[in-house]
């Protein structure tokens, strides 16, 4: 496979996954506000600031808007093209990548993505806010995103193309799970027993819903919502497909599929880094994370995911840029 194509497949998958996560994050937080009493500007800011921070684009947000409220955040995270990490920014970028490599993916996959793009282009925040309603809108995005994932599963051969796409998807998903947990990190400090109260429970439920983990969580933990259990579930579950451990296991599997190197050993830098992270996730638990400092642990995890994707880029996708002038000169000498 061309290195450039591998790069596009990786970004295609990352951007669609990112858009999907954003849609759920915004929707759940909009829902959450419905349970608050006496909302004023300060409370709204308090609510939305961590959400913006979790996307890593806080600075850009305050360059574009004066205050954080439901409408500005919705606009920023969904429609604003000046934010490349908005839903429409992500879907446009995913579509551009897909356009470059249309020959590699099924036409159904392309059409689903293109339909979503056309749908987003024909909407804006004001319209959603005043007419059609946010719930239906984000539902529509999630629907397309799930269809996209279903088509990846149902129409792509299990070859290098699939491996690079799934690699990108799980890198993004693991990263997003760390960021969603980070929104609530302060509650877990210093000790999980300090937390309580109705609003907090609502916040943790929202977190689980944003990760589409609410039902799966309840199937595993029969008791009430407990912050430490939620963290354990989203980090360490070996069966839930959005937990960090599950994602890293998938990343590891894709890397070994691509190289053909058996599990338990490594043939290149990304495999080595990923193997280490996976073993840390297998051989630690939520108490270790809390002891280390949840925020610091999540930060470090993001950093390690970054290193894995950087190393993968270097190994498979990066090609030394051609120095045209030098190349031309060399070829002209051979002509003489």
């Amino acid at each position: 496979m061309l290195s450039r194509v591998a790069d596009s497949l990786y970004w295609l998958a990352r951007y669609t996954e990112r858009a999907d996560n954003l849609a759920r994050l915004v929707e759940v937080n909009l829902q959450l506000l419905l349970d608050f009493k006496d909302l004023d500007n300060d409370k709204l800011k308090e609510h939305w600031d961590p959400v913006i921070r979790s996307t890593g684009d806080e600075e850009r947000f305050y360059e574009l808007y004066d205050e954080a409220n439901s409408q500005t955040v919705t606009d920023f995270l969904t429609f604003n093209r000046e934010n490349p990490n908005s839903v429409i920014g992500c879907i446009s970028a995913a579509r551009e990548n897909a356009r470059m490599i249309r020959d590699q993916i099924s036409s159904e996959l392309w059409e689903t993505l293109n339909n979503l793009y056309l749908f987003l282009k024909s909407n804006d925040a004001k319209h959603i806010w005043e007419h059609s309603g946010a719930y239906e809108f984000y539902d529509h995005i999630k629907d397309h995103s799930l269809r996209f994932q279903g088509l990846v599963a149902a129409t792509l051969p299990r070859d290098e193309c699939y491996d690079f796409m799934q690699f990108g998807r799980f890198i993004e998903r693991a990263d997003k799970t760390t960021r969603m947990l980070d929104i609530k990190y302060h509650i877990l400090l210093p000790s999980p027993s300090d937390v309580g109260g109705a609003v907090d429970t609502a916040q943790w439920v929202a977190l689980l819903r944003a990760a589409s983990a609410y039902d799966a969580y309840h199937a595993q933990y029969l008791a009430n919502i407990d912050p430490a259990n939620v963290a354990e579930f989203l980090i360490f579950s070996d069966t839930f497909p959005r937990s960090i451990r599950y994602c890293v296991t998938q990343i590891n599997a894709r890397l070994h599929n691509i190289s053909g190197c058996p599990w338990g050993s490594y043939s290149n830098e990304p495999e080595k880094l990923c193997g280490k992270l996976m073993s840390d996730l297998i051989y630690s638990n939520v108490q270790d994370v809390i002891g280390f400092g949840m925020h610091e642990w999540l930060d470090q995890c993001q950093e390690r995911l970054n290193e894995i994707s950087q190393a993968t880029y270097q190994t498979y996708m990066f090609q030394k840029p051609i120095d045209l002038a030098e190349e031309i000169q060399q070829q002209q000498q051979q002509q003489q």
């Binding site: 496979m1 061309l2 290195s3 450039r4 691509i258 090609q319 070829q331």
Partner: peptide
């Protein structure tokens, strides 16, 4: 940019 000529042969740059 995906192609490269070496020793009068054309190659593509793959993974």
């Amino acid at each position: 940019r995906d192609l490269l000529v070496r020793d009068f042969k054309v190659y593509m740059r793959t993974t």
